[in-house]
Nucleic acid binder design. Structure first.
Length: 259
DNA sequence: ATTGAGACCTGTCGGC
DNA sequence: TGCCGACAGGTCTCAA
């Protein structure tokens, strides 16, 4: 898509979580995609019109890339194809999302920072801006459990249910611990914040290197979806358990994540 | 401030 | 085989 023009945009239903914006296809047609970026779980496309093409995969969304020049391939519509972008490069990019929890939206120029979700995102976990100080600052004074705090995109952007559990396990911190406990009363980081910030970076770098979210059904994690398994922490010997927090499943080792 | 429950949807899996 | 409930990578809103 990058550097190509939108030749034709086909919208195959009213919307996903929300209705598609007014004149969505018309506002894209003839524009060029100048740059691609990402904030947290949001994909951002910088358009020659100054608008931003915003996308979120939700739980089940995906983009499929096909090319007119690919020999022996006949691009076809399959179930749950909702938006098709035909590009001047010959590429055809299709947004498919069975559960329709995803987002496809257009943001007017300059409106991204005031966007209800994107505008309040916390720091990028792999950027230098995210460190123990930033994490402690975000958690200070909060009495919510650490696991719930890690899922709050305003504290740190982009962590989901898998890596929230895994990062806490690597840092050997209980998911039930109050988030505020990793900071001093003045919001300075305690040892736990230093461990957790580092663990988040380690877990995410490893996940990206292994594409473990892209193929998450085949992937194996430290604790996620491993209840009943033996804990991987050297010398621990505990058994991974699952419980519920804020409506989501949390996995942890009650032995090495006691506090 | 925080929790909990429910909503949005369809697909998959395990148990019977 | 087929049916049924539980659960799923994520937000978002409302009530308590």
């Amino acid at each position: 898509m990058l550097g190509a023009r939108f030749d034709r945009v086909v919208v195959r239903r009213e919307g996903l979580r929300r209705p598609f914006p007014l004149d969505f296809a018309a506002r894209l047609s003839g524009r060029t995609l100048r740059a691609l970026d990402r904030r947290g779980k949001y994909l951002l496309g910088d358009l020659s019109s100054g608008e931003t093409l915003l996308a979120h995969l939700g739980m089940s969304g995906s983009f499929r890339v096909e090319h007119a020049a690919d020999p022996g391939t006949t691009p076809a519509i399959i179930p749950h194809d909702h938006v098709v972008f035909q590009m001047s490069s010959g590429a055809r990019i299709t947004f498919n999302d069975p559960r329709r929890f995803g987002v496809i939206d257009l943001i007017a120029p300059g409106q991204l920072t005031s966007h209800a979700a994107v505008g309040v995102l916390g720091p990028e976990p792999l950027s230098p801006a995210f460190d123990a100080d930033a994490l402690a600052h975000g958690c200070a004074g909060r009495r919510i459990p650490l696991k719930v705090a890690l899922l709050d995109q305003r504290i740190v952007a982009g962590l989901g249910n898998i890596y929230a559990s895994d990062a806490l396990h690597l840092a050997r911190l209980s998911p039930r611990r109050a988030a505020g406990h990793i900071a001093t009363p003045l919001g300075r980081p305690r040892a736990a914040a230093i461990r957790l910030a580092a663990a988040i970076k380690t877990v995410l770098r490893r996940a990206i290197a292994r594409s473990s979210t892209v193929r998450y059904r085949e992937a194996r994690f430290r604790v996620y979806d491993r209840d009943g398994d033996r804990c991987v922490t050297p010398g621990c010997g505990g058994t991974i358990q699952r419980f519920w927090q804020a409506g989501r499943s949390t996995f942890h080792c009650p032995v090495c994540q006691r506090s």
